[in-house]
Amino acid sequence: MILNLLQNGDYETARAKSLTALQENPENAELNYFAAWAHDALGKEDAAIPFYEKALTLGLTETYKKEAYIGLGSTYRITGSPEKATLLFQKALQEFPENNALRIFSIMTKYNLGQEKEALQEAILLLTNTTSDKDILSYKKAIQFYAQDLDATFH
């Protein structure tokens, strides 16, 4: 029921129902995750954080866990805690190394931490490894070579 509300964009009803359900079952990881999702979607990021944290602590299914990592990390980042986001994304990428959405959010966090060059390098490599654009792929080897040292010049 709450999941359907979230998937259909009825975040306020989902928030109210998840909060009510949590009064009876506060240690339910899924309900905490749903509450976090609803708060986040409503622009109540600060209120979402403790629900994300508790959901992850209690343990989620693999699918919800990936989503909670993205939601919490992104929320840390946009609420001014990029250091927390970086640590969370590092942990998440150890568990889910092939998840490119986690990589993108991690790259944005590196940018926020002033690691612009590293962020750009990672973004270029991710792009060249995941794109199906034939123009980019025709230069993949050169792009990846130059991405290793964006400041290099050759004379």
Rank of each mutant, 00 (worst) to 15 (best):
G9S: 14
G9T: 13
D10C: 01
D10R: 08
E12M: 15
E12N: 15
E12Q: 15
T13R: 14
T13N: 14
A14V: 08
A14Q: 05
A14H: 05
A14D: 08
R15Y: 06
K17N: 07
S18K: 03
L19C: 02
L19Q: 08
L19P: 00
L19T: 00
L19F: 01
A21G: 02
A21Y: 01
L22P: 07
Q23P: 00
E24S: 05
E24H: 00
E24N: 04
E24T: 02
N25R: 02
N25W: 00
P26Q: 07
P26I: 06
E27G: 00
N28Y: 05
N28V: 04
N28Q: 08
A29H: 05
E30Y: 08
L31A: 09
L31H: 04
L31T: 04
L31I: 07
L31C: 08
N32Y: 10
N32V: 08
Y33D: 06
Y33V: 03
F34R: 10
A35N: 04
A35S: 10
A35R: 01
A35C: 09
A36V: 11
W37R: 06
W37P: 01
A38E: 07
A38F: 09
H39P: 00
H39G: 02
H39A: 09
D40A: 11
D40L: 13
D40H: 11
A41W: 04
A41P: 04
L42Q: 11
G43Y: 09
G43S: 06
G43E: 11
K44L: 15
K44Q: 13
K44R: 15
E45A: 12
E45V: 12
E45I: 08
D46C: 03
A47F: 10
A48L: 12
A48P: 08
A48W: 13
A48V: 10
I49H: 01
I49P: 02
I49D: 01
F51I: 05
F51S: 06
Y52Q: 13
Y52F: 12
Y52C: 11
E53R: 15
K54P: 07
K54H: 14
K54F: 13
A55K: 09
L56N: 03
L56D: 06
L56P: 07
L58W: 08
L58C: 05
L58E: 07
L58H: 07
L60P: 02
T61Y: 01
T61R: 01
E62K: 12
E62R: 11
E62M: 09
E62T: 13
E62Y: 04
T63D: 15
T63Q: 10
T63N: 05
T63K: 09
Y64P: 02
K65L: 11
K65H: 14
K65M: 15
K65Q: 12
E67Y: 04
E67H: 03
A68K: 08
A68E: 11
A68S: 15
A68F: 11
Y69H: 15
Y69T: 13
I70K: 11
I70W: 06
G71K: 12
G71F: 10
L72A: 04
L72E: 05
L72K: 02
G73W: 14
G73H: 07
S74P: 00
S74A: 04
Y76R: 04
R77A: 10
I78L: 15
I78V: 13
I78F: 13
I78A: 03
